[in-house]
Design a protein around this nucleic acid. Structure first.
Length: 252
DNA sequence: ATGGTCGCTTGGCGA
């Protein structure tokens, strides 16, 4: 994370799978890196999400879905001088296990229920700021160009029709647009994740786009630049995901 | 069809 901050100098960083209990989150160390405003929730060893910001955060909330306190959704309103109030939803959607069948696999059922509950809530919500961002590890690659082989992955968890439909339903729960595909053509292969289970992750480029950033329609023209930092997959002790970086234009 | 890696909860699990 320090390398990312040094090289990219982001205003806001959103983390998923922090795997650290809320009380043990390294608030001071992260503050020293230039992010004094933080919103974090975590449980031991699993999940955990955090928002780190140079600008003030307010109205932070943690949401639990499927009656689990599993630290997969935190949101907060950022008040930046360049953009005003923007509510950021940081999500870690359940991965869903290996078998794409809700009868045989509880994890897959959980993944779909999580998305459905979240969608319903979004749809019925009122009083939220007009500008919103929804981002995170959504663990679904919806488009054909979001996976290395549409044919070979269509029955693999993360790229099945039922998951893609659930993700679409979430996208329709508000005025969301996919900020990344707004800037990268929909038929251009684009990945954010490469499995650890390959001797050489670059071989065959067997990636998937599991990480996303959506913005409300009123931010469409503010999207300046979109980047998936592929080189970070080769950094020392890398994550299997690479940072998704979106730059916004300052409001006039 | 299976296994491959990573990191912890040091077994087997979750990813």
């Amino acid at each position: 994370m320090k390398r990312l901050i040094d090289e990219v100098n982001p205003d806001v960083v959103c983390l998923q799978e922090t795997k650290v209990v809320t009380e043990s989150f390294p608030y001071n160390a992260i503050s020293d890196l230039g992010f004094p405003y933080q919103a974090a929730v975590g449980i031991k060893s699993y999940n955990g999400v955090a928002i780190l910001s140079k600008y003030e955060l307010s109205k932070t909330e943690v949401r639990n879905w499927c009656e689990k306190e599993d630290a997969r959704h935190i949101f907060s309103t950022i008040n930046s001088p360049d953009m005003g109030e923007v509510e950021v939803h940081n999500l870690y959607v359940p991965a869903g296990g290996d078998i794409p069948d809700i009868e045989k696999n509880d994890k897959f059922a959980h993944k779909l229920s999580f998305l459905n509950e979240l969608s319903k809530w979004q749809k019925n919500r009122s009083g939220a700021p007009a500008k919103q961002i929804l981002l995170g590890d959504l663990n679904i690659a919806p488009l054909e160009a979001d996976v290395w082989s549409h044919k070979q992955l269509m029955n693999i968890v993360s790229h099945t029709n039922i998951e893609i439909a659930a993700l679409k339903n979430l996208q329709n729960s508000g005025p969301w647009i996919d900020a990344v595909r707004e800037r990268v053509p929909k038929d251009e292969k684009l990945f954010s994740w490469w499995s650890y289970r390959a001797k050489d992750w670059t071989k065959g480029n067997r990636g998937r786009r599991l990480d996303h950033m959506w913005v409300t329609e009123n931010m469409r023209s503010s999207i300046e630049k979109v980047q998936l930092l592929k080189e970070a997959r080769s950094w020392e002790k890398p994550s299997d995901h690479v940072p998704l970086i979106v730059t916004f234009k300052a409001r006039k």
